[in-house]
């Protein structure tokens, strides 16, 4: 791809042919406010917030405008400012003002553009405020869908379509009645939704928000423990508890994607039924025991069962290191090759 240079607000920036103006700006660390754009998805050009003026005459949408060498872009042209300001003011005038209790607070794209544009109470007071009052869809166990916060950017619809090819949701109705909807606006849990949560993580506001989400204190890079695909995950931790899982965008396998089990199926980790001590069966019931007690018993019994009287079944669930030691133990200590695992199931 050949390189081009364009000018944004007087700054010369490099770009590659095929990029959009918005991409080029972002690649150079410039912020052009936008709402419906997402790097994983094709540009939609619907929020109109990323509006710019091209070559001093043409109003264009930077998320869909291909770069050209020598192009001159203004993001602060008065006409651009007016369109952007009205558009954001309109969105805010139709949005609930519950920021402090909102899941997206602090990480909300609408807040960000509103702040950038500079929405004042005085300006907002000129508008007729109107916020929807549609009951929140709480049918999914992992996330809620609050249509009242929805800005209809369509990122969820495009995620479900372009990335997941599931199409559980789509735009329905039209005009101001437009709504992101399943068939006949049934609860999302009754739809084809696979609860992968990919839409939830991309929602720029909190129309789609994880249930009972906790911001992690730190994140640990690891690998999902379910199927053999081996998706990279970021385990979100607070104290000694895993409170969230996100896809690892740097992982070459999943590039951030996760399925329902990978993203939401982590609560077994801190489950109260986890085994916490060794158990030894006494008089037909398993009773808590110390490691010493258990190891002594095992050492004794295993010592008497060396050779082909012994077998070990390792696990496809545990690490290479675990498996290596188990087969080493079976072969080197127990003297048998009776080792297998559940690969075939």
């Amino acid at each position: 791809m050949s390189k081009v240079t364009l000018t944004i607000d007087g700054l010369q920036i490099p770009a590659k042919e095929g990029m959009t103006v918005l991409e080029a700006a972002q690649a150079s660390g410039l912020y052009i406010p936008n709402l419906c754009n997402h790097p994983d998805l094709k540009p939609a050009g619907l929020c109109r917030v990323c509006v710019v003026k091209m070559d001093d005459w043409k109003i264009a949408i930077s998320c869909k405008l291909p770069v050209k060498d020598g192009m001159v872009i203004s993001t602060e042209d008065p006409e651009v400012q007016q369109i952007r300001k009205s558009t954001v003011e309109l969105l805010v005038a139709n949005h609930p003002m519950t920021c402090l209790t909102c899941e997206a607070d602090g990480d909300c794209e609408l807040q960000r553009v509103a702040h950038y544009v500079g929405i004042t109470q005085e300006n907002l007071n000129r508008y007729r405020r109107s916020v929807r009052s549609i009951p929140i869809d709480r049918s999914n166990p992992f996330f809620d869908f609050d249509h009242n916060k929805c800005i209809l950017c369509g990122i969820c619809v495009r995620t479900c379509d372009e990335l997941q090819n599931i199409n559980a949701i789509d735009y329905a109705q039209r005009g101001v009645d437009s709504i992101i909807s399943t068939l006949a606006n049934k609860p999302i849990a009754e739809s084809r939704c696979e609860s992968c949560g990919e839409c939830v993580i991309r929602c720029p506001v909190a129309a789609l928000a994880p249930k009972g989400a906790q911001e992690p204190m730190r994140e640990v890079k690891s690998i999902c423990s379910y199927c053999g695909v081996g998706c990279g995950v970021m385990l979100g931790v607070r104290g000694q508890k895993v409170v969230s899982v996100e896809g690892d965008r740097d992982n070459p396998v999943n590039k951030g994607s996760l399925c329902v089990k990978g993203r939401f199926g982590y609560r077994f980790i801190n489950h109260p039924e986890r085994l916490k001590t060794p158990l030894i069966k006494k008089n037909g019931t398993l009773e808590e025991a110390s490691w010493d007690e258990a190891l002594d018993l095992i050492a004794e019994k295993f010592s008497n069962s060396k050779g082909d009287k012994f077998a070990a079944l390792a696990s496809a669930r545990i690490t290479n290191e675990d498996n290596y030691l188990i087969q080493k133990f079976t072969r080197a200590v127990m003297g048998t090759n009776n080792i297998d695992h559940c690969a075939r199931l």
Binding site: C227, G228, A316, N320, N323, Q327, N337, H341
Partner: peptide
């Protein structure tokens, strides 16, 4: 397509009756 997270590894590690790692 391997069903479990580390089937491949378990096999690679010789958790099989006929082969070492």
């Amino acid at each position: 397509l391997r069903g479990q997270n580390n089937v491949q590894g378990s096999c690679d590690m010789g958790a099989l009756p006929d082969v070492y790692p």
